[in-house]
């Protein structure tokens, strides 16, 4: 046990040096926000996610797809079947090939994914000055510290004149220190007044809107989070009780061993 302690002490020292070193070497860390979905009992902030969905629909979806998120997935966000059908019907998706061999277009159905705003990556790139707006379904999981990253990115636009020396923000690009390389092609997407929240909701300022978008994107990236946390708490409670029982059972069984009994000769 002393050996383990020594190893642990040595590791702590190494880890201390290591973390100090890596803190010195990394770029701008995302701002840390306390999210409702964090922690063992964390769950989605459904109200906020609904507002985030509204922003996605009215703002983000002009450029960003949500290809792994289907209209029917809105159900756990608090929309009922008719609402989902109505939302889906606002979109047009590819239908069957008709009798002449042509692609038909039909209204979206709950089973369809949110359609991409562009036919393909090339179309997206040519419409956006060479940069392809990434699909957002998994964004929060596809970046380090994703939730805070998206929040920081949305709220982190700064004026070009604040860019440090060596960072050249060319025409049509924007300065955002949270983005890798600090120069981003996306214009600041959110600004006060860009969407109007229904009565009873908090004020639609930049900070609130950004948080709402993150809460929605957390849901699109990890729709199982609610079930996962709930099941996890139950499993850990169950395992703890079982393990405690096993511990005492073991202690009982081992008693004669501890007492020095020879199981092959005594009796």
């Amino acid at each position: 046990m002393k050996l383990l302690k020594n190893i642990a002490v040595a590791l702590c020292v190494t880890a201390g040096v290591a973390s100090a070193a890596s803190a010195a070497g990394a770029g701008k860390h995302p701002k840390q926000v306390e999210w409702k979905f964090q922690g063992i009992f964390g769950d989605f902030d459904y109200q906020s996610a609904q507002r985030g969905f509204q922003i996605y629909k009215e703002v983000c979806s002009a450029c960003h797809g949500l290809k792994y998120f289907r209209f029917r997935n809105l159900d756990k966000l608090g929309y009922n079947e008719d609402q989902i059908k109505a939302i889906a019907a606002e979109y047009e998706v590819d239908g069957d090939i008709d009798d002449e061999g042509d692609q038909t277009i039909r209204k979206g159905l709950p089973q369809d994914a949110f359609p991409s705003p562009f036919r393909n990556d090339n179309a997206a790139a040519s419409a956006n000055g060479g940069a392809v707006p990434p699909d957002l379904s998994l964004m929060v999981k596809a970046r380090h510290d994703g939730a805070n990253y998206v929040y920081s990115l949305l709220t982190g636009y700064e004026d070009e004149s604040d860019a440090p020396e060596g960072i050249n923000v060319s025409a049509g690009k924007y300065y955002n220190p949270y983005f890798k390389g600090s120069v981003i092609s996306m214009a600041p997407p959110l600004a006060e007044g860009i969407v109007e929240y229904a009565a009873g909701n908090p004020e639609a300022n930049l900070d609130q809107m950004s948080k709402d978008v993150v809460n929605f994107l957390m849901y699109t990236a990890e729709p199982n989070l609610h079930d996962r946390h709930k099941l996890g708490v139950m499993v850990i409670i169950f395992l703890s009780v079982l393990t405690i029982l096993l511990y005492f059972s073991m202690k009982k069984i081992w008693r004669p061993v501890k007492a020095g009994k020879n199981f092959y000769e005594d009796e």
Binding site: F238, V241, L242, L245, L246, F248, S249, K252
Partner: peptide, 8 residues
């Protein structure tokens, strides 16, 4: 204890 642990 055994029955409880094994059963669980």
């Amino acid at each position: 204890l055994h029955i409880a642990a094994t059963g669980m």
